[in-house]
């Protein structure tokens, strides 16, 4: 297991480095500059050049990159070129918002999806057909449409939940839950449908295996057969799918953050890319990459625990 983890950690560091270099290259290859954005329409080329000089944008790319990375390894993600604020603390204050949405949506879609998928596989018949058809419809609903619909019903018509904004947990746990309910539901509904279909297929496959029939013949209680033996077998692809879904949801929050005006990473990423605010873009990318890498490692470990055969692979 130690070698396995060491291998994964080494890969993670390489991935992170590659993404950092790629992001740096992409930000600098986009047409435009932070000076031009700051000075607005009509600014002369001379003024834009002078402003970029002040911001350090005109330095050779290698110098800019080295300067940034030597600070980053010490935990200093730099200062926003346009806002002047420290990138690290700013992103740290936004991470909980995005993480809460992505984690909440993953957890909710996991619970709803697994329950629905297992019920469909176990009950069969009309229930199966209904769940399969319903999840097929739900999976095709766009997140932004669901978000708008939920706001209209739950906030505007019923007045149950806030339409926009975020309350930190430390300020009020109840308001925190309120502020996250609709964004999480918007993302979780589609995710749950995906998980349900995957869980159903895996469960059907598991239930068809010979050792399950053998166990049934031994007189083992049906609940134990279903939820201990069959579900464990069926869980490997579902867990892998949920892990990938978390990564996907972490990225999808950009849309949800816009609809619900949430101060998450997506919001700052959008503003930073538009204004060529390289330190902010790089900071967001590092966080996102770390999340993806850590999730992947955690998934590998979890799947190995669920299926020991994979550890040897």
């Amino acid at each position: 297991m130690t070698r396995f983890l060491a291998r994964r950690a080494a890969m993670a560091v390489l991935t992170l480095l590659a993404v950092i270099v790629l992001t740096f290259a992409l930000v600098h290859s986009i047409p435009g500059s932070p000076g031009a954005v700051m000075l607005g329409p009509g600014a002369s080329a001379r003024d834009i050049h002078a402003q970029n000089e002040l911001l350090g944008w005109n330095q050779p790319l290698a110098v800019q990159f080295w300067d940034w990375i030597t600070h980053a390894v010490r935990g200093d993600l730099g200062t926003s070129l346009t806002g002047g604020n420290e990138v690290g603390p700013d992103l740290a204050s936004r991470l909980p918002v995005t993480a809460a949405i992505a984690l909440g949506a993953t957890a909710l879609s996991g619970v709803l999806g697994i329950v629905s998928g297992v019920v469909a596989a176990v009950r069969g018949g009309l229930v199966d057909r209904f769940i399969t058809a319903f999840s097929g419809i739900v999976v095709s609903l766009p997140t932004f449409w669901l978000g708008i619909l939920l706001v209209y019903v739950a906030s505007i018509r019923l007045g149950w939940l806030p339409a926009t904004g975020y309350t930190p947990f430390a300020d009020s746990p109840v308001d925190w839950a309120k502020s996250l309910a609709l964004p999480v539901l918007s993302l979780a509904i589609g995710g749950a449908a995906l998980v349900a279909r995957q869980a159903r297929a895996s469960m059907v496959e598991a239930l068809g295996q010979e050792h399950i029939r053998t166990l049934l013949a031994t007189g083992i209680p049906p609940w134990r057969l279903l939820y201990v033996h069959a579900l464990r077998n069926a869980s490997v692809p579902v867990v892998a799918g949920l892990g990938m879904q978390f990564v996907g949801l972490f990225g999808s929050t950009v849309i949800v953050e816009q609809i619900f005006a949430l101060p998450g990473l997506g919001q700052v990423a959008q503003a930073a890319v538009t204004s060529h605010d390289f330190p902010s873009v790089q900071g967001v990318v590092i966080i996102a990459t770390v999340v993806v890498v850590v999730t992947n490692v955690a998934l590998d470990v979890l799947i190995s625990a669920l299926n020991p055969k994979l550890r040897a692979a």
Binding site: I30, P31, V37, T274
Partner: peptide, 8 residues
């Protein structure tokens, strides 16, 4: 293609 292009 960019804010700069729009401003320019």
């Amino acid at each position: 293609a960019s804010t700069e292009e729009a401003f320019a």
